[in-house]
């Protein structure tokens, strides 16, 4: 190497170093962070606080805004549509979580080495890649009372026909089922990679101890899948609370607003033919945000503990 020959003294040359050079390691991260933080502040962090402010206004988005204090929240308190949406949000949260065990089940099913299994895994993942707009459309036809496969299948058992999307009692469940389809695929792929990391020695040891099937699964395999489960939980909760596309496409909130959730209701009051009530919409969004905040706090708390553990 050429620089071996350089006399030692030349390395001690830097006498006058600039401010940047002296503080390079402290300053550089901020230089790299500035563009990202700036973008994120302007479009994400500041708007969150702005929404809190907007929720105290009566404003149509164009004219003069009027400060009405907490009147929007008072109105929410007596708003039947709000309670319907809130109730549906909790149904979404509870049932959407089924994607996690369902995804684990399919992952276990496909976690074998037979010919062509890679292709099977990819094809099972397919629904997640497709836009929810298309998923909504497809499931709309699936439930169609005149020709939908769902009612044809019910007919085999002498049941139906049920107009799932036209019936207040079933509509939310029908939409959730449509949402579970891509979400299960997502959880499946998380678990498939998680399963790759399962320690075969522990499995063998447990087998020698006589652990079998469900016991093996629950006490040996599932604990090792904890990181995958955590991510699956995070993305499923977020997905449940963000549900908008499917509702908008499949029922547009109907029949009679019975399939609304907060995220859809918010959009409806702020940006649709029901009038441009930005303040009221923001108030709905704030409630949704506060529900999400419970989960965000938990997620961050878990991540914080893990970071400390490293």
């Amino acid at each position: 190497m050429a620089n071996v020959a350089v006399p030692q003294s030349e390395y001690q040359a830097p006498k006058e170093r600039g401010w940047y050079k002296r503080n390079e390691i402290a300053v550089t991260p901020w230089l790299f962070l500035i563009p990202g933080i700036l973008f994120f502040m302007v479009y994400v962090i500041i708007p969150i606080f702005q929404s809190f402010y907007y929720s105290t206004l009566s404003w149509d988005g164009l004219g003069e805004a009027q400060n009405v204090g907490l009147a929007n929240y008072a109105e929410l308190w007596d708003d039947g549509a709000f309670y319907t949406s809130l109730k549906n949000n909790f149904i979404w949260l509870a049932l959407y979580l089924l994607a996690i065990p369902a995804g684990l089940f399919i992952a276990l099913l496909l976690n074998q080495t037979v010919w062509g299994i890679r292709l099977y895994k990819s094809l099972f993942f397919f629904p997640f890649v497709i836009s929810q707009v298309v998923v909504g459309l497809v499931f709309g036809w699936f439930y169609d009372p005149t020709f939908g496969l769902f009612n044809i299948a019910l007919g085999w058992f002498g049941l139906g026909p049920i107009n799932v999307l036209g019936d207040e009692a079933y509509v939310t469940y029908g939409i959730i089922a449509a949402g579970l389809w891509p979400q299960t695929a997502y959880c499946m792929i998380l678990y498939l990679t998680g399963l790759n990391a399962v320690d075969p020695e522990q499995i063998e040891a447990a087998r020698l101890d006589g652990a079998k099937r469900l016991k093996m699964l629950w006490y040996v395999v599932v604990p090792q899948l904890k990181p995958a489960t955590f991510i699956a939980f995070v993305v499923t909760i977020i997905g449940a609370l963000r549900s908008f596309d499917l509702i908008s496409i499949m029922t547009n909130g109907g029949p009679f607003g019975s399939s609304r959730v907060l995220s859809f209701y918010m959009f409806e009051v702020a940006l649709s033919e029901y009038g441009f009530r930005m303040g009221y919409g923001a108030a709905v969004a704030v409630v949704l945000f506060l529900i999400m905040l419970v989960f965000i706090t938990y997620f961050l708390y878990s991540m914080y503990n893990e970071e400390k553990g490293r």
Partner: peptide
């Protein structure tokens, strides 16, 4: 945290 928020809180602003 910003990545987790529901879109709707950002919509109006």
């Amino acid at each position: 945290a910003g990545n987790f928020v529901p879109f709707q809180i950002l919509m109006v602003p």
